[in-house]
Amino acid sequence: MRPSITRTFTTTAAPERVHDYLADFRNAEEWDPGTKTCELVQGGGEVGSVYRNVSSFMGRESEIRYTVAELERPTRIHLVGRNEQFEGHDVLGVRAGVDGGSEVTYHAEFSFTGAAKYAAPLVAAYLPALARKTIRQMQACLDALGDGR
C-alpha cells in the first residue's frame, strides 16, 4: 500500500516566487504544519542537495533526510524523503494562473517498510485531513508572498 494524495490550488503569488519559495525546503518550517525544523545539510539547494527535516506526524517525532530529485524553474519541484522505514515523495507542479498568479499542484506519496508498513492504512485514512491542513497553510504563505510583490 502506497498512500498518496494530489491537490490543486491557486495563489496570487507569481510562479517564479512560488517556485523559489517552495524549492528552498527550509521554508517547510513555515508552510508545513508537521515540520518542526528543516535545515540544509548538503549542497546549495540544487538537485542532489540534502535537507534534514524533523517533523511530528501523528504524535510521533521523526527525522527524515530529503534529497532534491528534480528542480525545474518555475514549473517543477520533487523531493524524496527517506529514513529506515519510510520513503516519501513531495512533488510540486507550478503553472501560470490568472492575473499573474499561479496554480499549484501538490502531490504527496508515502511508502513504508518493516513494521511501519502497518501504519500505511492509518496514514491513508489520515491523509485527506493532513493535506487539507497543509494546503491551507501553504496557500496562506504563498499568498503573503503575492501580496508583497
Binding site: T75, R76, G93, V94, R95, A96
Partner: peptide, 12 residues
C-alpha cells in the same frame, strides 16, 4: 499531460 501543461502555461 499535466507536466507539459505546466510548461506551456507560460505561453497561455
Amino acid at each position: 499531460l499535466p507536466l507539459l501543461a505546466d510548461r506551456w502555461s507560460f505561453d497561455g
